[in-house]
Amino acid sequence: MIALHNYLILSAVIFSIGVIGVLIRRNLIVVLMSIELMLNAVNLTFIAFSRYLGSTDGQVIVFFVMAVAAAEAVIGLAIIISVYRHRQSLDPQEMQLLKW
């Protein structure tokens, strides 16, 4: 049988890969996708804990994380469309209007 550690290590690795994406990519859509990857890594942790502790709460929280992630993706993509209309670019480096 697989121990809980294995699931947690896998989640940590996937979360870190998501962090790489947020740090290095210069394309807003891919940055948003990396954030989705990180959210999924956390979901996996919740489900694993729910299974190993025999509690429902972890699964319910994942349910809410999915609802919030859907809202986040919708708003994020709407902002990306709106930014693209002004700048004709998806590069986060070029969004520096508030920088002095």
Partner: peptide, 20 residues
Amino acid sequence: LAGVLVPLVATSDLPADPVA
């Protein structure tokens, strides 16, 4: 970041077997 996270969870005291 992974180098911090992985040893942390690998050495923590967690249940090894799932609840039936």
